[in-house]
């Protein structure tokens, strides 16, 4: 019984995950057998030097990529050998991505950008608009709903990306260096937003180079050369008491 509830709360289970790229005759081992378990509502920072495999790991967790070998269980479902369309569905329902370069659709306004995952999820018009507006409100951009990305600041763009990631109420929020393209003040604002989202019960995984960003998380996983070097709770946590509405 106890074991059962424990298993239930485990969201991500990676067992001996390996990822290998073939570069001509050379084999690049990006991940060399990782074992990680992440529970619901954890707040994890993944750190490590450049080329250590952080993005590769994120892509596998986010079902954008499949491991060369190993087993990946998401929410109790084995996703390691799903096909393309099944993975697309999992990404749509379970994963919210936030990228370093925002990756918004330049020709669409904020509302449409945020609606997009719902369109692919088959959510109908009225409900879709309502959910999108709700999500935009959560990141404090209600008055920018009809702006195009190029009319927004970097921080605002990243908020739109977060709203888009949140709109389907995914199980995990994945952010690969979400503050990498932002100045430190704006970066802090975005991290403050993640803190709030974590408090609201979201599971968050962030890739970062910066100790200060990692200090927001509750758990820090250090990767080096495709291996986990450290996996430990964060002791020097940094909390920004942040008022979303005021900063919008």
């Amino acid at each position: 019984m106890n074991d059962g509830t424990h298993a239930m709360s485990i969201l991500i289970r990676l067992q001996n995950i390996k990822k290998m790229y073939q570069m001509g005759s050379e084999e690049v081992h990006a991940l060399r057998g990782l074992n990680v378990e992440i529970k619901k509502n954890e707040y994890v920072a993944i750190m490590g030097p450049s080329g250590s495999g952080k993005s590769t790991l994120m892509n596998i967790i986010g079902c954008l990529d499949t491991p060369s070998s190993g087993m990946y269980e998401l929410n109790g479902t084995n996703v390691s050998d799903m096909n393309d369309n099944q993975l697309a569905r999992v990404r749509n329902k379970e994963i919210g991505f936030v990228f370093q370069t925002f990756n918004l659709l330049a020709r669409s306004d904020v509302l449409h950008n945020v609606e997009l995952p719902l369109i692919y999820g088959g959510v109908g018009g009225g409900e879709r608009k309502r959910l999108a507006r709700e999500s935009i409100a959560r990141v404090g951009l209600t008055d920018r709903a009809h702006h195009k990305p190029n009319e927004l600041s970097g921080g605002q763009r990243q908020r739109v990306a977060i709203a888009r990631a949140l709109v389907t109420h995914p199980s995990i929020l994945l952010a690969d260096e979400p503050t990498g393209n932002l100045d430190s003040k704006t970066g802090d604002e975005i991290m403050g937003l993640f803190d709030v989202l974590h408090k609201e019960g979201n599971t968050i995984i962030i890739v970062t180079h910066e100790e200060e960003i990692a200090a927001h998380a509750h758990r820090r996983i250090r990767i080096r050369d495709g291996h986990i070097e450290h996996d430990e709770p964060v002791t020097d946590r940094r909390i920004i008491h942040h008022d979303i509405a005021a900063s919008a």
């Binding site: 954008l64 369309n85 697309a88 990404r91 749509n92 692919y120």
Partner: peptide, 16 residues
């Protein structure tokens, strides 16, 4: 290409 990547990342199936 990037836009296609983004759409796929947020769950667009091949058909879409």
């Amino acid at each position: 290409t990037r836009e296609i990547g983004v759409r796929k990342a947020i769950g667009a199936p091949r058909r879409s």
